[in-house]
Design a protein around this nucleic acid. Structure first.
Lengths: 229, 229
DNA sequence: TAGTGGTCTAGACCACTGA
DNA sequence: CAGTGGTCTAGACCACTAC
């Protein structure tokens, strides 16, 4: 059996974890490591490239590869469809369409999505339920110039998120996580007290430079977004 | 100039964005694509592998490569050191050590970190400031059995986070994001009202199976964690 | 300017798994 | 059981940049 890039990566990680390779120290170059491990340079390259992507080491041409002083802790969080998130918990999924209105984009929205003044948008509010209990509040604005088919879509049958995701590719996304205090409307819908701290994700999506949608997802009290690595 | 994996990746992404490759559709196999692009199969492989890592396509042996029905199931967030986060905003960093106590792990903590009953831990509370204003509250517990040197460390000079990160390699981390209501202590420290919604990250860290530390980072009101892709 | 990583190539073998 | 992706190899050229 030949030496795989996983072997190399695991060994390097182990050396780092055991302290044999300390933060800031220089690793041998790819050619030397390949010789030491008895594999091709490409194999070492892939191992080290992945370690660099994960923020464990830092690579620079000519300067070589070093163990990072402060490993860049970057976490990957899964952003599942609400339906899947709920069903994964073994609960029954259901959603209600609370609001559907066609209007000219308010100024704040036009600003956030770089829309022409007065652009027509579709505003949808949706409540996603787990076993009948409020789970997530979805407040969405769709740029109708970019997605004209949304005008006639039946969002009572399929939630706006799933509808968009199944229909449109994407090109660029921005996600912003924060904590918000429940206002009266949110509190009423999600069944919590006004002022309660709620977890929110705001997502803006573009397709080839044109804004498609802005959505604010607010989870019920106590929601956590977790990841391990 | 030869065809690079970036060229291939960009072209595939473009086809997906333009709708030529719709969600769920099957892409040609690597050999065919290599022929079409006039490059080696390894080049196509790298392009498609990266698209798969990014959640754009889904690859299965024998079944081939498909455009994902629900793209982008994951987002990467950077978890920088507070100091860097603050300095990146052009503000002056400073921190105060508010509490330092040595004690036996309370039950809830022993449970969370899988510690032996009565294990000795170091409890630290630290306030990180940006231009003098409260920015982030750090509430940390360190397992002294795993990190005995922490007993004598000067956390007034270097914050606990930076101290640990510079000294210890990593092996396993769990991060959990949530929204919490400010209790009296947090409100006082961060200079907000009691009950205000605050963004929190809780992180547990292990080194080769042994729990090192549990930390709760709570940001000042209005903090957002943002990522783009 | 020399040494490092970045990438491509052409060929090969293999593991997996869906038709 | 045949076709797909997964990976390794050996060699090559090149871009970048620290020295």
């Amino acid at each position: 059996m030949s030496v795989t890039f996983r072997d190399v990566k695991a060994d390097l990680l182990d050396r780092i974890a055991r302290g044999a390779l300390r933060p800031g120290s220089l690793l041998p170059n790819e050619t030397d490591l390949a010789a030491r491990y008895g594999c091709a340079r490409a194999t070492v390259n892939r191992a080290m490239r992945e370690l660099a992507e994960e923020g464990i080491v830092e690579r620079r041409r000519r300067a070589g590869t070093r163990v990072r002083m402060a490993p860049v802790r970057q976490a990957r969080f899964a952003i599942p469809l609400v339906r899947e998130e709920i069903e994964a918990q073994g609960a029954q999924y259901r959603h209600d369409l609370l609001c559907r209105e066609l209007l000219a984009a308010p100024d704040w929205l036009a600003g956030r999505l770089e829309l022409a003044p007065g652009a027509e948008v579709l505003h949808l509010v949706c409540l996603h339920r787990a076993d009948g209990m409020p789970y997530q509040h979805e407040d969405r604005w769709i740029n109708l110039a970019a997605v004209p088919e949304a005008r006639g879509a039946d969002f009572a049958a399929t939630g706006p998120n799933e509808w968009l995701v199944a229909r449109l590719p994407f090109s660029s996304v921005e996600i912003s996580l924060s904590a918000v205090a429940a206002d009266r409307a949110l509190a009423g819908t999600l069944g919590c007290a006004e002022g309660d701290a709620l977890f929110r994700a705001e997502r803006r999506t573009w397709l080839r430079g044109a804004a498609i949608t802005l959505v604010r997802l607010t989870w019920r009290r106590g929601h956590r977004m977790t990841t391990r690595y």
